[in-house]
Design a protein around this nucleic acid. Structure first.
Lengths: 117, 117
DNA sequence: GGAATAGTCAAGTCATGACTTAACTATCTT
DNA sequence: AAGATAGTTAAGTCATGACTTGACTATTCC
């Protein structure tokens, strides 16, 4: 449907975890090594490594290993998938709320109170 | 950090499930009732109801009950949170890859092969 | 009023996913 | 070469979340 990208669900899943979202948040400001990413979290380094692997597989983050340290950075290409998905669908959303109101009114012979419960 | 919205994690979580993403996908084209949403899925109606509740609590979808049917529609305000989060961070991502290259080269005395494994 | 329709709520099951610890590899430093 | 640093992998635990079924409520149709 439209440009629905199979990577999208994986991206969303990767970003759904609060820790991973916070990682992306910090990486948005500057690239960081694995230990630097781990520092503020009350969590084992191994756990952070796992999170980074999830982010990388999903296409949210890219990493480069130099020597014994791994540098992490936002995967702008991957994130662009999310952005364009949103942008494409926005076009359809516009004016849809008005249409809904019209539709509701159309099929409502009797003008009851609208319940949103 | 920046305009980090507490609703963001919830939104991401709501959209991380493939079924819910598909629901949002269909609602992007047109508003639907609960049963209409459920129709194409090989899943109980109760399960779909639960998904819709998750989407609504997260701010991805709005619903209106008229009589015994509930109409569902994309929550454009809620989705705008996601959009603006992405847009805001994009500014920082730009050029960050080039900076990374520079940084890597700067701290690389010896020009080894770059391993991205 | 009675039957069909549209949806909701409550339990309970099961798989997945977010951690842990421990053992290990690779790379610097001195 | 030896110890410290940076990260990785594997195996196991535990909580959460995605379903199910079954009983129930509210509305519309005949």
């Amino acid at each position: 449907m439209l440009n629905f990208n199979p990577k999208l669900a994986g991206l969303m899943t990767a970003l759904s975890d609060p820790t991973r979202l916070a990682i992306v948040e910090r990486l948005s400001l500057t690239p960081l090594s694995v230990s630097e990413i781990a520092a503020p979290f009350d969590m084992s380094l191994a756990a952070i490594v796992q999170h980074i692997q999830v982010l990388e597989k999903a296409g949210a983050v890219r990493t480069f290993k130099r020597g014994r340290t791994r540098r992490c950075i936002i995967d702008t290409d991957g994130m662009a998938i999310l952005k364009s998905w949103l942008t494409d669908r926005e076009r359809f959303w516009q004016g849809q709320f008005d249409n809904l109101e019209a539709m509701l009114d159309a099929q409502a012979h009797n003008n009851k109170e609208e319940t949103d419960t």
